[in-house]
């Protein structure tokens, strides 16, 4: 590459190729990171105390923000859905519309995005600080595997917490839609819930669960990776945290498209 960039004819091609090569290298590193993480997941012992702490941090501590997001998403859906359906003369379908939109799509995606912003960023920052203050090196010197201590508990905690938070998001969102559609705009409660029951089937619920499982793994993978490979000083941690949130959020949306096209 050095010779290439020294040559004024080939230098532009060298510069052009450097970016994709860098992206490919980063993808390879991320793949290796995931493989090592999965290797530790399936090879005991697990650090249960750390896992419990991370389930609380990623799951329980995100409950309020996820519930609020779910409630207002459901309420907005109630409003928009009611007025849209009113134009078609079919407001009775508000229940299925809110239910399907939340369970299939908005619940998994928005809950995952909220967890990324609240917990994923904190995980990336925590691991990044441990990296720059040589705490990860200390684990290695002690002959302990940093993946087992830092990455695996976050990975498993996100796998457990994100589907549960998605379920909370869905339920609160449906109640938010009920509040607006039934209590505020006068739709009958029977129509709202009855039609929802008729049109939302197990396949829709399972689709949402699969998505949220994938998103949980994705959040932990990206955020732990970015923190683990943080650069130097406060700037390095700050950059790692930002990249973790941006990359995880974009990947959630991209992966959601592919999963939707496969599952539904």
């Amino acid at each position: 590459m050095a010779n290439l960039t020294d040559n004024w004819v080939l230098a532009p091609a060298g510069r052009l190729g450097r970016r994709p090569v860098g992206v490919l290298r980063e993808m390879g590193r991320m793949g290796i990171f995931l493989a090592r993480t999965l290797g530790c997941v399936f090879a005991p012992p697990l650090k249960f105390e750390r896992l419990r702490k991370q389930i609380r941090f990623i799951g329980f501590d995100s409950l309020l923000v996820v519930s609020l997001t779910g409630a207002f998403t459901g309420m907005v859906l109630g409003f928009q859905g009611f007025h849209t359906l009113a134009k078609l003369g079919s407001t009775a379908f508000l229940g299925p519309m809110v239910g399907l939109a939340l369970i299939r799509e908005l619940g998994p995606v928005l809950a995952a995005l909220m967890v990324t912003g609240r917990a994923g960023s904190a995980v990336a920052a925590e691991i990044g600080i441990m990296r720059i203050t040589e705490q990860i090196d200390e684990l290695e010197v002690l002959g302990l595997n940093p993946y087992r201590y830092l990455v695996v508990p976050n990975f498993l905690a996100a796998l457990i917490a994100v589907p549960l938070l998605t379920a909370v998001f869905d339920v609160v969102g449906i109640l938010g839609g009920y509040l607006v559609g039934v209590q505020l705009l006068g739709l009958s409660a029977g129509a709202y819930f009855g039609d929802m029951n008729a049109y939302v089937d197990l396949q829709d619920v399972l689709g949402g669960v699969y998505k949220s499982l994938c998103f949980g793994a994705l959040i932990a993978w990206v955020c732990c990776y970015k923190g683990y490979h943080a650069g130097y000083g406060a700037e390095g941690v700050s950059r790692a945290t930002t990249q973790a949130v941006v990359v995880a959020s974009v990947l959630i949306l991209v992966w959601d498209y592919f999963m939707t096209s496969i599952l539904f």
């Binding site: 203050t133 705490q135 090196d137 200390e138 002690l142 002959g143």
Partner: peptide
């Protein structure tokens, strides 16, 4: 091998410049 290296490292101690205490 990683396991052998981990075992061998039990005979090492390292005092890092910043202490590297788990905060």
């Amino acid at each position: 091998q990683p396991s052998a290296l981990a075992e061998l490292r039990s005979q090492f101690g390292f005092l890092f410049q910043g202490g590297a205490l788990f905060d």
